[in-house]
Measured scan of single mutants.
Amino acid sequence: MQRVNMIMAESPGLITICLLGYLLSAECTVFLDHENANKILNRPKRYNSGKLEEFVQGNLERECMEEKCSFEEAREVFENTERTTEFWKQYVDGDQCESNPCLNGGSCKDDINSYECWCPFGFEGKNCELDVTCNIKNGRCEQFCKNSADNKVVCSCTEGYRLAENQKSCEPAVPFPCGRVSVSQTSKLTRAETVFPDVDYVNSTEAETILDNITQSTQSFNDFTRVVGGEDAKPGQFPWQVVLNGKVDAFCGGSIVNEKWIVTAAHCVETGVKITVVAGEHNIEETEHTEQKRNVIRIIPHHNYNAAINKYNHDIALLELDEPLVLNSYVTPICIADKEYTNIFLKFGSGYVSGWGRVFHKGRSALVLQYLRVPLVDRATCLRSTKFTIYNNMFCAGFHEGGRDSCQGDSGGPHVTEVEGTSFLTGIISWGEECAMKGKYGIYTKVSRYVNWIKEKTKLT
């Protein structure tokens, strides 16, 4: 034993070699072989497995989906700052455009905790909710729209109204504003409101030439003092309507412009014939205590009207009353817009006519005020429907199939267009061939041609 100890002390290297040989010859039971080890760690190889990531292109799944990435790591994937920024906006807080917040056709661009709407022409605001041009839906104005110097929408209202708090709607500024039905039992019968379409306001006024200088022999019209197929109006439903009495009662109609003036057809009036105007009328054979009678003290036909040349060209006249009318729910003026808007309103496509005229061709006159909704007829169809001249200051309205029309005794009465609950004068009943005849239409004086003249002559002093 002493000898062994001496050998170990003198030859430590020998001992180490012996131990190493023993270990190498022993069977290893701690580690699995290569094949079995792979069965336990069965993990798919990654895209760049075996390579240094710093030297390969980034992978979106590896960089940002398996674990949260930084902007720089995302930049490695896209290799483009702009594309990385677009991805980053949604990656950080989701897609803010998912709810489609942009209105009126706006395009949404996502941002971090926010979004941006790219608005089409005519709109602005956070969600493109603000109209900035009158060309689109009248700028959301209830009545009139004008573009300011910086191309912003400025709404306005006709006389007797003021802008509401929203700067879009119009509200009454006087007790009985024009064009409004205020009798409670008839307010439910107000005709369907007309909503502004998209309009090209630059070209809204037709490029028409008034044929002022045409000389033409007097034409022989049949029954051209021209509501057939209409309905009984309720008291106060058309408070701007008046009836004219002269040699015979209810020979023509008219509309209240203001307390002192009536507008009617020029062919209705004769110099030297006494005319009485009755406002607030409903049943011409009954006294309903809503009527107001006034005498006409002055007749002003349009300066281009000449019955000797043509009885229905420039067929418009103004009547001055001896005493002002007292405005109330049964006696209310009709609204008159400017030339541009009167023309736009007419193009809405349908209007209402009213009167006490004959209820059928050569038949009896109506006792109760009649009204009828009539569609506008395109000019080409209008011209083809008659052998008589249709001037540019006239328009056609009615039904091709016949059966409904204005008729004798309705002449001078109103053709009105309702705009968001307020009625505007767009025409004056003038003439036609018979009444409600198939293929024939009622012919009306186009008020847009005469609004400046009306307003100039009827100013209240």
Rank of each mutant, 00 (worst) to 15 (best):
G412L: 12
H282Y: 13
S406Q: 14
K438W: 10
C145F: 02
K440R: 12
T386Q: 09
V353I: 15
G106V: 03
Q90E: 09
E116T: 13
S220I: 14
R140V: 07
R3L: 13
A337W: 00
G403F: 11
G412A: 15
T215D: 06
I428Q: 03
C252W: 01
N5I: 14
H302N: 05
H400E: 12
H400S: 14
V377E: 02
G50Q: 08
L367A: 13
H361I: 10
L319W: 02
D33Q: 07
A307L: 07
T287D: 14
A26R: 01
G50Y: 05
K438R: 11
N203E: 08
C69I: 00
E124K: 06
K274R: 13
T332G: 05
I344Q: 09
N42H: 12
S70I: 05
K68A: 05
G398F: 03
T16N: 06
C170D: 01
V353M: 05
D338E: 08
N313D: 08
A337C: 03
D111N: 11
I15D: 02
L460W: 10
H34D: 13
E401C: 05
C268N: 01
V56P: 01
S365H: 13
E270N: 13
V273C: 06
E10W: 13
G94S: 13
V30S: 12
S406D: 15
R191M: 14
F121K: 13
K339Q: 15
N104Y: 05
G349H: 08
E98Y: 13
N104H: 13
V374H: 02
R226C: 06
V242N: 00
V374T: 06
T271E: 15
G229D: 12
G254A: 05
H289T: 14
C28M: 05
K168E: 07
K247T: 13
G409R: 11
S204Q: 06
S187E: 09
G254T: 01
G403Y: 14
P172V: 06
K168L: 11
F87M: 04
K152I: 08
E418M: 12
Q370L: 03
V4T: 13
L325R: 00
R379S: 13
I262D: 01
V419F: 13
N100I: 07
A250M: 07
K446W: 00
D212H: 11
D111Q: 12
Q408N: 14
C335M: 00
L376E: 03
I429A: 15
T133E: 11
C134A: 03
F399Q: 13
F196M: 10
G413I: 09
K234Y: 15
W431E: 08
L130P: 06
K39L: 11
S184C: 06
L41H: 08
N104Q: 05
E54D: 00
P12R: 10
H400Q: 14
E72H: 05
G413A: 12
Y22G: 09
E270P: 12
